[in-house]
Design a protein around this nucleic acid. Structure first.
Length: 781
DNA sequence: AAACGCGTTGCATCG
DNA sequence: ACGATGCAACGCGTT
């Protein structure tokens, strides 16, 4: 420790000593056990010498560790300037081939590569053939490319991955296989098991692949999630030991995250503005590349075995039928079909609506549009890498270049892609990013451990129709609009239930098709005012917010059919309806639909005090009297139950939700969205909206310009905006279950309230219209 | 270095 | 219907 501290002071400049330290760091890393989700690599550091886990956090050490951790990675890679020439990723002096060899065995490798025979293209994310650096590398100078996917047992675990996302993955794989067959006379080879075991087999026994000598290289797309980093490290080391080259090339994000790390000196920008500055230094993302014309197939002797020995997985597989038995009972294929082909089709459809693309403003899209959605719904394809982010970026940019009044970041489509990029970068640079404790950037807040509240939220029985409808859509379709994610995330955390954002993130992770580790955790921290966003007094109302978009409650009626006959006046607050009205509607609150689990008007104010106290505590200012007491008292007032029964692990689906955070911690002991924007004439590559512009009187709405350009309002039939975040929900029957909440009883039936909202004038189309408002507004004017 | 500007999408009220 | 205002006031980043 002493040593490290000393070293740190020197570290800023001198890398040498850094490397030394690092060494121990990385050892600790590899030794630590992590675990299942693509998540706990960093968290496995607790036992490491630098203890930044826990209450006290030493920034000096942290920054040292951060550099060390990343630099270690870099050090292990050789910068082979030479062999990436053809498809040099952007800014590529720095392309890091993680060549396995170090200087000594470089010679060995080059000998091998002089007579290259076969390569392995390992698909993980990046489930596409276009714009795929790893694929291009795999094709270089070899006779055979073995395109493989390894079905990691981790992924087939109902508690981790819902059936909807699992099926999306299967469709991505099937699509890859079909493209490989149709265009390259090849196949996707699906192997089962732990990746390290699979590679052990492949690398030690050439005959397994019908080869007479081992493959010469393994190529894959870099993945910065903790689980992946750990997994890949193993593979890289194994390959190195066997004298096989390993190329992990970037490609999932617009830029190589290691390159961005270099540019920000390992000090990741936490604010959008500073991230923008970083991006501007780096320039534009590389232009997307095409699918290679030829992908040399495996030898015929091997191909003939694929069908029987390495078949594509399917929902019909016995183990799947068994594991997902519960969920499969009422499984219906969601609107989204996985696969590169479908993803590109959607992208094409979207980009044909040039005006819509150029005018896209995320805040203008609607959370209640579901058929069709108001956004692109490309997030799931982005998550799996079925569509290249660079391709998306440049397709949008090309449109913007033609449309002078186009929207700009952060609200634009390109802005969304930039947020995605930033969240990836931050998730890469911040330790314990999926946790509050040990996460140096995350506000430490005294969230309650309340499994009952958590379950009610996850299972759509909060008694707030807006919240429950959203959670039902999540469960059913694996997708909800970005703003809907905001609503329910705020409700679960700082707004109403005061449960930890980690709990919500886990549930979203399970149910969202587009669940992406980096984006999901970032967004949950954002919404809970734990990181990125701190105006905790801006609380979403579980009543007003939905009403703003959907006065008649069509969305609610669609997803909560029990409420379908509730008068519009009470659709967002059914408990306020007179008993007779409830009877007539066939929905008696407390019998057919739960009573509100908390009284929002009361609880959100108390929570606000708790947030304030938590912030103050962080400042070291123990929020004296009022605050201190406030922190604990509200919990009691809220009826936060104490010895709640830990929900028994009921349906597999409900299990994750039911488990309390603390319990989990004990047991374990141990991310769409974005799109952005563009430049006007080619001057600046990234025009930040808002920031640099001075003359904004108030809100500069970029749409202002829209007025000037005639084409604006394109109406494009359906879409509005898209964008999504990630989150999830649980299954379970929805509304029923009486409200057993113990929390604050909500306002009794028929209390005050207003009966407004009756105006129902617009149909769905109208709603959509509204969304596009910027254009419409401009026009109107 | 204290002060200020700003922040991807809050709400209720008023005009 | 829409925009402006007050609400009570956050941290970050820059100056």
């Amino acid at each position: 420790m002493v040593l490290s501290v000393a070293a740190i002071t020197i570290a800023r400049g001198g890398l040498l000593c850094l490397v030394l330290l690092l060494r121990s760091r990385s050892l600790a890393l590899s030794a630590a056990s992590s675990s299942f989700r693509l998540s706990h690599c960093f968290s496995s550091l607790p036992s490491a010498p630098l203890s930044f886990i826990g209450e006290r956090f030493d920034w000096g050490l942290y920054s040292f560790w951060r550099q060390g951790n990343l630099l270690t990675r870099l050090k292990t890679k050789k910068h082979h300037s030479g062999n990436t020439a053809e498809f040099k990723p952007p800014h590529s002096g720095r392309v890091r081939l993680s060549q396995t060899g170090d200087s000594e065995n470089d010679s060995g490798i080059s000998e091998m590569s002089s007579a290259p025979s076969a390569s392995i293209l390992w698909f993980r994310k990046g489930l596409r053939l276009h714009d795929n650096y790893a694929l291009l590398e795999a094709c270089k100078e070899v006779k055979h490319v073995f395109p493989i996917f390894i079905l990691d047992p981790w992924f087939i675990e109902p508690s981790n991955v819902g059936i909807v996302r699992y099926n999306f993955l299967l469709e991505c794989l099937a699509d890859l296989d079909s493209s490989l067959r149709a265009r390259h006379n090849s196949r996707l080879i699906v192997l089962r098991g732990q990746p390290s075991k699979v590679f052990e087999k492949i690398l030690s026994d050439p005959s397994f692949l019908c080869l007479d000598k081992p493959v010469s290289k393994i190529c894959f797309e870099k993945d910065t999630e903790p689980y992946a980093l750990k997994r890949d490290k193993q593979i890289i080391e194994m390959a190195k030991a066997k004298g096989v080259q390993c190329h992990d090339l970037h490609g999932h994000t617009l830029f190589d995250l290691d390159l961005l790390m270099d540019h920000c000196n390992y000090n990741v920008p936490m604010q959008y503005g500073s991230f923008n500055q970083l991006i501007e230094k780096v320039g534009l993302p590389a232009k997307p590349l095409e699918e290679p014309k030829e992908i040399p197939p495996p030898p015929p002797s091997f191909l003939s075995r694929v069908e029987n020995e390495f078949p594509l997985p399917s929902l019909e597989d016995e183990d799947i039928k068994k594991k997902y038995e519960e969920e499969l009972k009422d499984y219906k294929h969601p609107a989204l079909t996985g696969g590169e082909a479908h993803g590109l089709e959607i992208l094409e459809k979207v980009t044909k609506q040039e005006n819509w693309v150029a005018q896209f403003e995320k805040p203008q899209t609607s959370p209640v549009a579901f058929k069709p959605a108001s956004t692109t719904k490309l997030s799931a394809y982005m998550k799996f890498g079925a569509v290249s982010s660079r391709r998306f970026f440049h397709a949008v940019r090309a449109i913007n270049l033609k449309k002078p009044g186009h929207s700009k970041p952060p609200g634009s489509l390109l802005g969304q892609l930039l947020f995605r990029e930033q969240f990836y970068l931050v998730s890469y640079g911040v330790p314990n990013f999926d946790k509050m404790k040990g996460n140096p950037k995350c506000k430490q807040i005294d969230w309650d451990d309340n499994p009952e509240f958590l379950s009610a939220w996850a299972e759509a029985r909060t008694g707030y129709p807006w919240i429950d409808a959203i959670m039902t859509q999540l469960r059913k379709e694996g997708w909800i609009h970005h703003l809907a994610r905001h609503s329910v995330a705020c409700f679960l955390t700082r707004g109403d239930l005061y449960c930890s954002w980690e709990d919500g993130a886990k549930i979203f992770d399970r149910y969202l098709i587009d669940a992406d580790w980096a984006l999901n955790n970032a967004n949950w921290q954002w919404l809970s005012a734990s990181c990125f966003f701190y105006q905790f007094f801006r609380v979403y109302s579980p009543v007003a917010f939905g009403k703003k978009y959907d006065k008649e409650g069509k969305y609610v009626r669609h997803f909560l059919t029990v409420l379908k006959n509730m008068p519009t006046e009470f659709i967002y607050e059914p408990w306020k309806a007179p008993k007779a009205v409830q009877e007539r509607a066939g929905c008696v609150v407390g019998r057919d639909y739960p009573k509100p689990i908390v009284d929002h008007d009361v609880i959100h104010k108390k929570n606000l005090d708790r947030m304030k106290a938590a912030y103050d505590r962080q400042k070291g200012i123990s929020s004296g009297g009022g605050g201190g007491g406030a922190a604990a008292a509200p919990a009691a007032a809220a009826g936060v139950s104490k010895g709640v029964k830990r929900a028994s692990p009921p349906a597999a689906a409900a299990a994750p939700a039911a488990k309390g955070r603390k319990q989990r911690e004990k047991e374990e002991s141990e991310s769409e969205e974005s799109e952005y924007e563009e430049e006007e004439d080619g001057d600046s590559d990234y025009e930040r909206g808002g920031k640099g512009k001075k003359g904004k009187g108030k809100k500069q709405k970029s749409p202002a310009k829209k007025g000037s350009t005639p084409e604006k309002r394109n109406t494009g039939g359906g879409g509005n905006a898209k964008k999504t975040m990630q989150k999830e929900e649980t299954t379970s029957s929805s509304a029923r279950g009486g409200a057993k909440k113990k929390g604050i009883a909500p306002a009794p039936p028929s209390s005050s309230s207003k009966a407004s909202g009756a105006s129902s004038k617009k149909g769905p189309a109208a709603a959509e219209e509204k969304k596009k408002s910027p254009a419409a507004k401009a026009k109107a004017k």
